[in-house]
Nucleic acid binder design. Structure first.
Lengths: 334, 334
DNA sequence: AAAAACTACGCAACCGATTGTGTAGCGTTA
DNA sequence: TAACGCTACACAATCGGTTGCGTAGTTTTT
């Protein structure tokens, strides 16, 4: 069953040395034509597959790239990974995935695993609970390049790829205002996420710009769980003057919030409007989707992230920190 | 920047041999307490991380598991991977993902990559276009265990995990009939997929059971692309006597087909009903979801698949082919 | 006090490749 | 024909660990 065909075996059967076999398989010019042919032939007959581990040991490279993100099941991330995997394969790398589940401890753990595992580089989208970046400093100390995407840590010396969420939030809020909706709530993400601050900043900017006083009760944080979103949305609706529109942290939050609205008999895009981030593909199947969503192009983000990472892996000497801002786009639905 | 601290370096600084360092780090009893402590101390000071590649080479194990499936972006698969990754981590393995994009050639390629990569085992959900399994025989020849899940190849000597789709189809069709709908169409998958046959078998079984003649025009195959689904659904609606209900290959097909219906002014769950497979979570956000869906429990499938695989990796001598049938469940909505 | 038994390491082979260098054997050149 | 140069391999170190076995030096046993 097992097939431990090694160069040594081929060498033994042919009465030559391992180095000859190695060179023959690489078509090294210093090996005679006859010998080369015999080696290739026998290798094929014995189903020889070079041992990648041995080669990695010699080359001090594994051609493995680790990817750490909150949830594989969120389409935003699976789309990004899909793009990452695509580029990786085309460049001869493999992708090792680990999910943090938005849990700081688990993020530490899996990042450590990747280092122990011996990846050549790591791509990370931060867990929402992460407030401490020491585990990444650790990775840097080992000379393993990191690239952050979407949920980035801009205070670290690593490259990152993200969209200008503040600008996106500004566009989204402006759009909602342009519909004549002035009572706009913000169902924001957890305070640990930079993306949360940025959305808030955009929101505040627009409100100020239009001289609309900010209603503190309209601004709420959710921990991204369905339950918390439902609770916070309920609180918004219970307000004496409930919002006419809600800008949600992302489509998942929007959907969960919209469900609460429907349960209370509110008609989406009529009694209440939603704006959100991500523009997830399945929203196109909804009869009443969020009226506007900021597309963040996860495919492009993933692609850019791995390109930066591979560049960093293959040219460590020319490494320079880069911040790539992927253009976002306001998608208005029907 | 780079940190190539090796045992050799530790040994040199401490004036002992590498074997002593190795044993000290493993807390081998034959190493004196004093020496052991000094080694541990220095190792920590130098940020020593054992080189996994070297260890893998010695142990002839990489603790890597390859997973090949059509699309990471389909929630059914990302849920399965998520479960796989979870178990993998808890057992000390890492997951390398590759998507086949339902393309036979790409499947061959990535399976080959995984072998070259040196994974300890592979989990596969077949590409819809795959009609030839020689690439898996190749893998078997190298003694690398494989476990198939969901889209399985039952003619190979490998274990597999799947749901009884035929039984699911039977339940779904029976349910549609119980609603008084007798003109039921089947928007099936590609003929290369075993799952397609099984759905057909279930469909035929119920129709025969109820003495309903099978209308050949009601049974169509789609290649799972949105366009093809739209085309075939359109053809169904153009029939002189269009179906009252459609059993779709999965939720994606159902959604694409439903969209065509809506565009033609048909009300879902009123003018036409849909049954499908997968019960994707986001269907719960739809106002008019497919009335019934067969839940296939991707999380359980993934979990079972990797358990079988790891068992096969760790006890190759007791390997026995297993076919695990995960119980499905008919979900009726609202 | 000599033999036996430990203790605490060192030595060296090994995992499966890659690669720099050394060298027979043969044909060329002068 | 002796010196020289090629061709086509072999030898051996190396990547970074693991592990069986051997053995000084010390302690325990008789």
């Amino acid at each position: 069953m097992v097939n431990p065909t090694t160069m040594k075996e081929i060498a033994r059967q042919l009465g030559v040395t391992v180095s000859t076999v190695s060179r023959a398989l690489q078509n090294h010019p210093s090996i005679g034509l006859r010998t080369r042919e015999r080696v290739h032939e026998l290798a094929k007959r014995l189903d020889y597959v070079p041992n990648p581990t041995a080669i990695n040991l010699k080359r001090r490279r594994t051609h493995n790239i680790g990817v750490v993100l909150p949830f594989l099941t969120e389409q935003f991330f699976s789309t990004a990974i899909s793009a990452i995997e695509d580029v990786a394969i085309s460049k001869g790398y493999s992708v090792v995935v680990m999910q943090s589940r938005n849990d700081y401890e688990r993020e530490r753990l899996v990042v450590g695993n990747l280092v122990k595992h011996g990846v050549d580089g790591i791509i990370v989208s931060l867990a929402s609970e992460t407030q401490n970046n020491s585990h990444f400093l650790e990775v840097n100390k080992h000379g393993i390049p990191i690239v952050f995407f979407d949920r980035v840590a801009r205070n670290l010396p690593n490259s990152c790829v993200y969209v200008d969420v503040t600008a996106g939030a500004i566009e989204a809020v402006e759009f909602l205002l342009s519909l004549g909706l002035s009572r706009i709530a913000l169902l924001n993400g957890p305070g640990t996420l930079q993306a949360t601050d940025e959305r808030l900043k955009g929101y505040v900017t627009v409100m100020n710009r239009h001289g609309i006083p900010i209603n503190r009760a309209y601004v709420r944080s959710v921990n991204l769980s369905k339950e918390d979103t439902a609770k916070k949305m309920g609180e918004l609706l219970d307000l004496p003057e409930p919002p006419q529109a809600v800008l949600a942290f992302n489509d998942y939050v929007a959907l969960d919030a919209m469900q609460v609205c429907r349960q209370r008999g509110l008609a989406i895009n009529q009694d209440i409007y939603f704006g959100s981030f991500s523009n997830l593909p399945f929203c196109s199947y909804l009869e009443h989707p969020p009226i506007a969503s900021i597309e963040q192009f996860p495919h492009e983000m993933g692609t850019k992230a791995i390109q930066l990472l591979i560049a960093g892996i293959e040219n460590p000497e020319h490494f320079t920190r880069e911040e790539v801002v992927i253009p976002h786009k306001l998608i208005v639905r029907q």
